[in-house]
Each structure stands twice: as structure tokens, then as C-alpha cells.
Amino acid sequence: MSLESVPPKYAQLVQTLQRRIESGEYPPGSLLPSENQLIQEFGVSRPTVVAALRMMREQGWIDSQQGKGRFVRGRPAMDSVESNRPGQAYLTTPEADTPGEVLEAGAVAVPNRIGALLDVPQKAKAFLRRRLIARDGGPTELVSLWLPLELSEGTDLTSGEPLTQGLREHLKARKGVRFDHVVEQITARMPSADEARKLAMPKNTPLLAVFGAVRDAAGRPLVVVEILLPADRHELEDAYALTS
């Protein structure tokens, strides 16, 4: 069930393009309008269009062909649809593909909830990389990556520049670790004063806090991705097949 009735602009664009594909306005095999055409028609920014098209490609609605454009595939089979889970993009997509800035990168005392998810003792330190994501001219998400200190050593996570690899690929290349599964938790709470300021949130607006605990095949904690979403700008949606 939707948690908020007004999704961000890139999600609205995805929904509109999906409806046009399902109605036959954009039939399978047809060429999707270009980025410039979508920008002009919908009055949105290029990052918004790029984010929407990337999501549609990842979900199997369209294909990209170098030098030719993007072609419609049609509605993907339900069992092949990747759910639009908030933490997934921040584990697989390069930071350089998402507009934002690095606010913090270093060892900090771990909060109780993060410590429990990382299996780190209370009052111990963990590595934190925190970014403020901006879309459509304003801040939209506060994303924190938490790792055991030893897993951050020898990586580019301390850099103030955006990563050119996804976190999953980067840690596999640098540390030899393999992500196996994610346990996701979603809570709602009021923001701290600092969080509300960074996210330019109106007074008395709650946050959606998403925690994705990444584990290897043996169940060992590797990473926790924490995403703070202003509830007035986001909805959370999932899709799944019904078994007989």
C-alpha cells in the first residue's frame, strides 16, 4: 500500500511511461521518445528523466541500444520485475550516476540500531559514508552506508568524490566480499533538527527510515544502508507474484 500519495517526479514519469506502454501508445519494439523530448513534454530536469529511464531499464520495460536510442519491450513478466526497493539502487548504482554530495566519511561511534544490524559492540566505532541526494532542485534523501572498520580499509569510501562503481562491485573488487541477501526494515519517526535542516523538511513532517542489512551467504553482516526519506515526497511500492 502506498505510504504517500505524491511520489517524486522521476517516479511519476515512470508511472506515466508505463501506462503508455500498457495502453499501446508505445507498443513493443517502438522507439521511446528521446531524453530531450521527455524533458520538453513533462517540464522536468535531465537527472529526473535519466533516473526514470534507468529504473525502467532495470525493471525490464525498455532496452537501450548504443547510438540508436531506447526501445520498448513491454510489460515484463511479474516474476522478473525487480521491486522498487529503496536500498537496492545505492548498493548497485555508481554514486556518480546520482546527483548529491558527500557529507561525511570516516570512523564514528555506531548508533545502537546500526550496531545491532552490523553485529558491532555498543560504543564501538564503524565506518560511515553519508551523502545528501538532490533531485528536481532540492534534497530528497539522506543516505548512510555503515561498514565494519576493517571492511572499509583499502577502499575509496573515504574519498569526498562520488564512487564510479556501485558499492557491491567496489567491495567485491577491493575486499573480495560477495553480497548474498538483504534484510530490510522500514520505520517512521520524526526527524532530528539536523536531519530536518539538511532535507529542507516542513515542520511536523515525519521521516521514513529504511534500513537494509546486507549479509554474505553465511549470514555475516557486511554493510548497512540507511536511507532517510521525507514522507511528504516519497511513496514505497512493491510488486510480487501470487502463487497458486
Rank of each mutant, 00 (worst) to 15 (best):
E195A: 10
E195P: 09
A196F: 07
A196T: 09
A196N: 09
A196Y: 06
R197E: 14
R197M: 14
R197C: 06
K198C: 12
K198N: 13
K198Q: 15
K198E: 11
K198F: 13
K198T: 13
K198P: 05
L199W: 08
L199E: 11
L199D: 10
L199M: 13
L199H: 09
L199Q: 12
L199R: 10
L199I: 10
A200Y: 03
A200V: 10
A200R: 10
A200L: 08
A200D: 14
M201L: 06
M201I: 05
M201S: 11
P202F: 08
P202G: 13
P202R: 07
K203F: 11
K203S: 13
N204E: 15
N204S: 15
N204K: 15
N204I: 07
N204G: 09
T205L: 12
T205D: 12
T205C: 15
P206V: 03
P206H: 10
L207A: 13
L207R: 10
L207P: 03
L207Q: 15
L207C: 14
L207E: 02
L208E: 13
L208S: 15
L208F: 15
L208I: 15
A209M: 11
A209P: 06
A209W: 08
V210C: 13
V210K: 01
F211D: 00
F211H: 06
F211R: 00
F211Q: 01
F211V: 00
F211C: 01
G212L: 00
G212P: 01
A213S: 00
A213I: 01
V214Q: 07
V214D: 02
V214T: 00
V214K: 04
R215D: 01
R215C: 05
R215I: 01
D216W: 02
D216K: 02
D216T: 04
D216P: 02
D216A: 02
D216L: 01
D216R: 00
A217G: 03
A217M: 07
A217R: 08
A217T: 09
A217H: 08
A218I: 02
A218T: 14
A218R: 05
A218D: 11
A218P: 02
A218E: 06
A218V: 09
G219K: 05
G219E: 06
G219S: 08
G219T: 06
G219Q: 05
G219L: 04
R220N: 12
R220I: 05
P221I: 10
P221K: 12
L222D: 07
L222E: 02
L222V: 10
V223I: 11
V223G: 06
V223L: 09
V223H: 06
V224Y: 02
V224Q: 05
V224N: 03
V224W: 04
V225A: 13
V225H: 07
V225W: 04
E226W: 03
E226A: 02
E226G: 04
E226Y: 02
E226H: 11
